[in-house]
Structures are given as C-alpha cells and as structure tokens.
Design a protein around this nucleic acid. Sequence first.
DNA 1: CCAGGCAACGTTATATCATTACATGGAGCG
DNA 2: CGCTCCATGTAATGATATAACGTTGCCTGG
Lengths: 160, 160
Amino acid sequence: MGSISFEIHDHSVCTDKTMQEVDAYCETHKLQFTPIRRKVLTIMLEEHRAWGAYEILDRLRSEGQSAQPPVAYRALEFLVKHRFAHKIERLNAFIACTHPGQHHAPAFLICRSCEKVAEAHTEPSSGELGAAAEAIGFHIERTVIEAVGLCATCRDATTQ
Amino acid sequence: MGSISFEIHDHSVCTDKTMQEVDAYCETHKLQFTPIRRKVLTIMLEEHRAWGAYEILDRLRSEGQSAQPPVAYRALEFLVKHRFAHKIERLNAFIACTHPGQHHAPAFLICRSCEKVAEAHTEPSSGELGAAAEAIGFHIERTVIEAVGLCATCRDATTQ
DNA sequence: CCAGGCAACGTTATATCATTACATGGAGCG
DNA sequence: CGCTCCATGTAATGATATAACGTTGCCTGG
Ligand SMILES: [Zn+2]
Ligand SMILES: [Zn+2]
Ligand SMILES: [Zn+2]
Ligand SMILES: [Zn+2]
C-alpha cells in the first residue's frame, strides 16, 4: 500500500530502498542498469508523483546529459518493462514503482491537488473487472487502474 | 454489460437505441445536440471500438465537413462531458457510450487483436481500489479502469 | 588479435495527440 | 435593434511519442 506517498515521511528511505532493490534485481537478472537509466530513475524517485517524459528530459539536460526525446523514452521503456516504473495513462506520465521487480498489477490514487500519487496493488482476476471479463471469456493481460481525486491532506485543507 | 461488443449482433439496434436516448436526454436537459456533435457520435457508433480524434476528423472531412482539430475535440468534449462517449486513456481515443446519459463509472475491456471494446460498469467505492482509497482517506472523483487482453473470439482464433 | 554480433546510445526528423487564440455567425431577448 | 451567449471556422502552436539510421563499446568465437 502506498499511503505513505501522501504523508510526510523520511523519503530518503524510499529512494535508497528502491535503488538497492533495483540494483539487486538487475544483478540477478543480468540487466544493464546503465548511468542514463539510473539517472532517470533517480529523478523520478525525488517525489511520489508522475513525471512527464519531457520534464525528465529537461532535467537530464540541466545536468549536462545530452538528451533528445528517445534518450528519455528508451530509459523509461526499460524501467517500465522491468516494472521499476509505471506509466500513468491518465497523465501521460511516468512514476517510479514502490515495489520494483515484483510482478504486480498496480493501481494508482492520484491527487489532483498536490499531484502526489500512491501505488496500490490489485488482483486483476478479482473484483468487478475480473468478473466482467470472466463472464464473457475475455482474457486480461494488462490492467490500467487509476483513480483521480483528493488525498486526505488536500481534502482537509479545502474543507477548512 | 458490454459482452455484445465482441459478438456478432444486430448492431443497428445499438446505433438506433443510442441516438434515441441521446436525443431524449438532450431534449430533457436543454442541450444542443448539433449536427456536428450528432455526426461525430454517429461515426463513433459505427463500431464498438475506440476512435482517435484525428480519425474522426478525417471522416468529417471526407464527408465535406470543414474540420480542423478543435472541431473534433469540441464535439468530443461535449459528448464526454455528458457521458455520451468516454475517453479510453490507454489508447488516447474515444468510444461511444453504451448507456448514454446515465451517471456511471465505466470500465473497459479492450481486445488488442480485433480492437473491439466492451464497456462494463463499476462501483468505484467498492473493490480493491475503493478499499485502498478508504484506508488512507482518499476521496475518489473519477476512475480509469481499463483492461487490455484478448476477447474470446480472438483467443479461440489464435489457439487453433 | 580481429571480425562479427549485439545492446546501448546519439541525433535528426517526423508522427501523433491536444490546445490556445481569435474571428464569425446565428438564436434568444429586452 | 443591440446585446449576450453559445457554437463554429481557422491558423498557429504545444505536448507527447516514435521511426530511422549511424556510432560506440563490449563480448566472443575463430
Ligand atoms: Zn517516499
Ligand atoms: Zn493531495
Ligand atoms: Zn453493437
Ligand atoms: Zn478480439
């Protein structure tokens, strides 16, 4: 559960833990966690929110990295493919995964006010969507589950 | 439930029923169901699939309608706003609603082979997403629930 | 050593999706 | 009529994403 995303917390723990897990996963699976890929993930780990590809690109540039669009998109493709990051379809943007390497079906809670995003997990075959699919023999391969709304903090702020 | 989307059926019934319901809804709610809006919905009703804005635009042009991008996007904005159509975020494309006017939270089953799309309904507050939201006091305003996979017909075709 | 294969990266150009901004026109109304 | 409102026409631009092709660096079989 990603409730931590909306709360004040020691975020360096999130960052360090993720990088360690990704490092270990790449070691185990013989994946090349190259400097560019590492840099992109590091940028995305700065905050629990979704990052546009061109926003990442700007960051790469500002850090001296040569950066045409494919540079960012290729790094993101790698990160998404191996589940170190996810694409938020609603936002056309990308977010670092909070459970890197684990094969999972993520669901997201997106606060439209503070823009923070929490990652939860689902069991695609269960629930209403799974039931609807089963009823008609539809085979689910990938799910997009995203909720937009207000986090507790932002809701409290607006109702006062 | 939208299982009918993947089956052979008398599709003129879908089209006629939808147009009647939209007509009635607009009458009741004093909405202007203008020729362009009607034309766009008619195009989308041709098939149970998602249509790109520029695809609709091309169709409008081929039918003699002047058509710059805002023409299509404005009609789509109207249709989506009043729940006569939905946007499929995964595809950056739009689909005619099968329950026009009813206030509902749609979910979609998208066949990656035949590209047909079925619309099901969910109760956002229920299920895993609703539980995750409730657990952290997140207030859901809108949900994006989409599944990509293979419909029964396409799956049967590939396993033979 | 060195040729060949391969994966990542550099770079240009282009494709695809969406919006801003401003002008025009017609319906309703005092 | 003069006004407002809403829909539409149109040009320009912005935002997101990919195609295509060349280069580099590493590994490996010969
Ligand atoms: Zn954190
Ligand atoms: Zn918030
Ligand atoms: Zn039909
Ligand atoms: Zn199919």
